[in-house]
Amino acid sequence: MSSKAQISKKDYERGLRIADRRKEMGLLQDELAHRVGIGRQALSAIENGGDFKVSVLRKIAVVLNCSTDELLYGVFSSINEEMQDNIMNELKRMSKDEIKKWLYMLRAVNDIS
C-alpha cells in the first residue's frame, strides 16, 4: 500500500482548510513549507487540492496545531480541546517519573509512525 493519501481527485476543500488554518496562524506559504520540510511549490500544490504523503500531512497538522482529521475532513470541534483537558487531568495525577515514561513512549510511537 502506498504511503500517499488515497485521493482519487483533487480535494480543493481540504486545500482551503489547510490554507485557511495557515493564514489564521499568520504563516506565509514559505514559512509553513520550511517548518514542514517541503518546498513552497509542494505546499502550494497541497493547498490547491493536490496529493501528498501522509507523513507530510502529519507534519502540517503539528505545525498548524490541529489534528489530521481537522485538515482532511473539516472536523473542527471541541474534541481537540476536550482531549487536551483529559490529558492534562491525567498528567496532573502522575508523578514526574511517570510523566517522563509517557513522554518517552509518545516520542517512540511518533518515531515509528
Rank of each mutant, 00 (worst) to 15 (best):
L27F: 14
N80F: 11
V56P: 02
Q41K: 13
A33R: 01
A61P: 01
I38W: 08
V56D: 09
I99A: 09
N86K: 07
D30S: 15
N65L: 12
D97G: 03
L32K: 08
S44H: 12
N110G: 04
D85H: 04
Q29F: 05
R107C: 04
L72W: 09
D97K: 02
V54Y: 06
Q29H: 13
N110I: 07
N110M: 08
D51K: 13
D69P: 00
V109K: 00
L72H: 07
D111K: 11
D97Y: 02
R40Q: 13
L64Y: 14
V56M: 04
N110E: 14
K53P: 00
I60Q: 05
R58Q: 07
L106T: 08
L27R: 02
A42M: 09
I46C: 04
S95P: 00
M94V: 03
E24Q: 13
D111F: 03
S95M: 08
D69V: 10
Q41V: 12
F52S: 12
F76W: 05
L72R: 12
H34L: 05
I87V: 14
Y73W: 09
Y73F: 15
N89A: 10
N86P: 01
D85I: 03
A108F: 04
I38Y: 07
K96W: 04
S44A: 10
S55D: 13
G49N: 03
I79D: 11
E98R: 05
A108Q: 10
D85A: 09
N65A: 14
I79P: 00
Q29L: 10
S44P: 01
E31M: 15
D85V: 01
E81P: 00
L64K: 12
G74F: 08
D30A: 15
G37R: 05
N80K: 12
L43A: 08
G39S: 15
F76Y: 08
N89F: 00
L43E: 08
S95E: 05
D51S: 15
M83E: 06
F76A: 06
K53G: 03
L106H: 09
Q41R: 14
K53S: 05
K59I: 04
I87N: 05
D111M: 06
N80M: 13
S95F: 10
V56H: 11
V54Q: 02
R58D: 04
S78W: 03
E24S: 11
L91A: 13
G39M: 07
R58L: 04
M83L: 12
D97T: 02
L64H: 13
M83N: 08
Q29D: 14
D51Q: 15
S67W: 05
V54N: 02
